[in-house]
Structure formats: C-alpha cells, structure tokens
Amino acid sequence: MRPKTETPPLENATHPRNNNLTGILLMCAGVAFLCINDGLAKSLMDHYSPIQIIFLRNVIALPFAVILALKMGGRRALRSHRIGVHFLRGLIWITATVLFFTSIHLMGLAEATAIAFVAPLFITAIAALFIAPVGWRRWIAVVIGFVGVLVIVRPGAASFEAVSLLPVATAFTYALLMLSARFVDTRESMWTLLLYLSATSAILTGSIVTFFWTPIRAEDLWLFAAIAFFGTGGMTMITQAFRVAEAPTVAPFDYTALIWATGLGWFFWGETPDALTFVGAAIITASGIFIIFRESKVEAQS
C-alpha cells in the first residue's frame, strides 16, 4: 500500500512546529507522490508480481534511504537497537503492500484507496482493546467509519465482490504496522525506522523473489526507477511535514489522496467511482479526521 510514515509521536521533532503552511504543502506533495507510486504499481502489476515490484523498489531506493538517514539523523541513524523488531515490521509491511497492490490491480484505484483509509480506525480500535481505553466519542467515530466501508463494499448486494475485502485486510495489516512501532527502541529516530523498513523489506523479498521473477522488459525500467523515486520522495516529504508543523494541522491532508486516486484512476484507466463510493469515502474521511482532532484534544488535556 501507500508506504506512509509512522505516527508523529514516535519522534520528537527537532524543529519548531510553527510552520503549518510549509507542513501542509509538504504533506500534500508527499501524498501526491505516494498516489503516483500507487498508480505506477497498478501499471506494473499487469506484468510483474507484487513481490518483484516491492523488491526492486526497495533495492533501488535503499542507497538514497541511507544517504537521507545520514543527512537527517547522522551516523547513529544507521544503528538499530532491536533489529528483530524491524524485520517483523518489514514482514508486516510487505504483507500490507502485497494486499494493497493486488487490490488496486483488481479494482478501482480510488475505491481501494478509500477503503484502505479505515486503517486509522483499526488503529484506534486495536489500541483501545489491547493498549489503552478510548472515549465513547472515538468509538462512535470508529463505528461510523466502518459504516462507510459497508457503503462502499455493499456486502449482500448484487454488486458485491470479495476482492473489495482486500483493502480492508490492507488497512488492518497497516494498523498492525503502526502499532508495532511501540516496540521500536525509543533511541531510534524516524529516519532509522524508514531506513530499516526499506532495508528489511528488500532482504525479505529478496529471499523469495526468484520464485516470482519475471524478466524485466526494457520499456518498464523507467517505471521501476520512478516508483522508487516517488515512494521515497513521498515518505520523506510526509515525514518532514510532521516535523515542521503540528500533527492535527497536517494529518487531515492525507485524505487528499482520495482526490489524486480518483483523478489518476479516471485519467489512465477510465475508472469512475459510483455515487455510493463517494458517500462511503466521505464517511470514512469524516470519521478519520474526527479521531485525529479528538486524540489531539485528549493528549493536550492529559
């Protein structure tokens, strides 16, 4: 799926969080880059397996991730204190990405993206059940958000397709990835997490990629380079957005992905989501934004 960054609290920002305009612009640009990344993956899925795409994307991007980690975090950003946790996170991320790439290959880009945005709702629900309780307002938002999923998926209707459950599984797996960050050593920076997510994913997919390998066509070489560029660039800009601005200010702009996904799906594949998909996406978006602001308010009061 879209390789977004971790939740902001994982790293104390090293810059004053007072440049909200810059943060918003970085967030919007990063989201656009990651949506282009998804569009490129959708194109490549016609000829290559998700494992091969993930492997080549990370191998190409890894040198740049190392340079970025060194520049932003210094040499200590290259060191991990809990390497096993990073491999576990790499495995979870590969699973989420395979699920999402498969879903956008088999269904509309906008529809899959909209459903996958229930990940924050899964995070809230799982955290409430196993980590710390949340208030009734957030539980209501979670329930309403999942109603939005039902509006899009429409189980029991004649139009229902089992493939629409893939983005739901993506969102659940991605929620596990976000929550697994709790087990990362607190001495490790955001740049260490991003670096090791790419490195472990390259290693893990590299161990099995021969079973999924398809000879690369010459005309597709630039697509693999582009997916590495846009994926890495998008992750970097979103990370910076959270570093220079307040999280509640920039986080809602992640939902601009729905605009990009709709536009790219329509322009390149002629995909036009129906009215109920837009209704469901609006419900999911509203629920997610409410949770963002509610959690920030609760955190400020604690």
Score class of each variant (00 low, 15 high):
A127D: 14
L165N: 03
T102V: 08
P273M: 02
E188H: 10
R76D: 14
G263M: 11
W269S: 00
L179Y: 07
I152Q: 00
R17F: 10
V118W: 00
A282K: 00
N18P: 07
T14G: 15
L106T: 10
W269H: 06
S80K: 10
T262W: 05
T272K: 09
S198E: 10
V134N: 10
W139D: 01
A13S: 15
W139Y: 10
R82P: 10
N19G: 07
F224S: 07
M27E: 06
T192G: 02
V98I: 15
A41W: 05
F55Y: 11
A241P: 04
A157Q: 14
L276S: 06
G234S: 13
A171P: 09
A162L: 12
D185Q: 08
G280T: 05
G280N: 03
F172K: 08
P248Y: 01
N37A: 03
F122I: 03
L177C: 02
A119W: 13
V118P: 05
I283K: 04
P50T: 06
E295C: 00
N12I: 14
I140V: 13
F229M: 13
P252C: 04
F293V: 12
A110S: 14
F87I: 07
P248Q: 00
L40R: 11
L197F: 05
T210D: 15
T173C: 01
R17W: 09
F100H: 03
T97R: 02
F172Y: 06
W266T: 08
R187I: 12
E11T: 12
A32M: 11
N18F: 13
K297R: 12
N37I: 01
T22G: 15
I115A: 02
D274V: 05
A300K: 14
A282H: 00
L99M: 03
L26F: 13
L62T: 13
S201H: 06
P248A: 01
W139Q: 03
A77N: 07
F253Y: 08
L34G: 03
T124S: 14
E188W: 04
L70S: 13
I291V: 13
V153I: 12
R82A: 07
A300T: 07
A228R: 02
D185T: 07
V209N: 09
F146Y: 10
A228Q: 09
Y255H: 09
E271C: 02
I67D: 04
T102P: 00
L221F: 15
G231W: 00
T14S: 14
G233L: 05
H105I: 10
N20K: 15
K71W: 14
Q52V: 06
S287G: 04
T285A: 03
L221K: 15
S296C: 04
L56N: 10
T5V: 05
T14I: 06
A61L: 04
I292K: 02
T97V: 09
G280S: 06
W222V: 15
